[in-house]
Design a binder for these strands. Sequence first.
DNA 1: AAATCCGATTGCATTTTGCAATCAGTTGCA
DNA 2: TGCAACTGATTGCAAAATGCAATCGGATTT
Lengths: 173, 173
Amino acid sequence: MNTDHRSGCPINLSLEVFGDRWSLIILRDMIFGGRRHFRELLNGSIEGIASNILADRLKRLMELGMLTKADDPSHKQKAIYSLTEMAISLVPILAHLGAWGRVWLPVSEELSIRAELLEKGGPPMWEQFMVDLRHEHLGAPARASGPTVRAILQAGYEAVVARKALAAVRDPA
Amino acid sequence: MNTDHRSGCPINLSLEVFGDRWSLIILRDMIFGGRRHFRELLNGSIEGIASNILADRLKRLMELGMLTKADDPSHKQKAIYSLTEMAISLVPILAHLGAWGRVWLPVSEELSIRAELLEKGGPPMWEQFMVDLRHEHLGAPARASGPTVRAILQAGYEAVVARKALAAVRDPA
DNA sequence: AAATCCGATTGCATTTTGCAATCAGTTGCA
DNA sequence: TGCAACTGATTGCAAAATGCAATCGGATTT
């Protein structure tokens, strides 16, 4: 059980889990981007993770109980990574982190619209999102009605992108 | 403005601020431990930070706008580090992080009692705590009445330590 | 006058990271 | 059938970060 921790402080132990530059990025892409495969995570993240780091972090997150891995039945070579409840319960923290970053850091509009929507939706929206994720990743029952939270966030993102593209056409720099 | 960031994503930018093993530990010790001096931070943290890392992180956090440094008037050699609003507004995130760690990680009872109290106090208690911190670090007005939140957390900690010591006396292993 | 405390700094070995190339097996398509 | 593209990784290597111990010059305490 006690495998070499610096201290039993909750904040310290949390840092030992994702106190690095990539683990939370991977979880972000799985949670908000819906990515489930190695290549999706490798090519999909804007930040450009290296494949050896990705492999290492996926392994680590699995050992920590944040992810599981299964064979993709439709594709003998593909592996599907799933979030565990431990990872899904990070949603409120990611929402707070996004809100904090929006206030204090030089975020871009496109990439912070999701954080803004999630902040406005508040804890009820986070809870809906977690239900969606449990459905996707743990096989739990889906919500009865309405679009998924990820679809809502994605729609907001696309609206911003479209609006900026339109503005660029109208007013070429 | 744009000084070499991996992306404008709020979560990524947040990770660039404290996505390492020490920055949040230092902020934790300042926020919850009330430490203001280099030596207090050096000797006070259970995890045992090295002096060169501490010096580097203090400098970094100052450059990022999370801390300020001032001369201690009572001691020509001492420097006092203060939290900025940017750092104080991390309190809700630290509270969530502590709550998450308490559920999913092998925390020790002594070191997680603060997180437990903060969780039970909820957002109203966090807000009180932030008012206290603004008073301590920014010279803002103090709350009119009642003990500081840190004093409450500290009392809880000491109660646990005392209870465990008593149990050890009564039942020597 | 001596010892201790102050916020660091230095040197050095170890570990982690970043990057590019590569791997063997699987799949899709001509 | 042949072959290119794609699958989840692995390897080698240079650069950066970390951990650790010793040390610094000045200030304060005893």
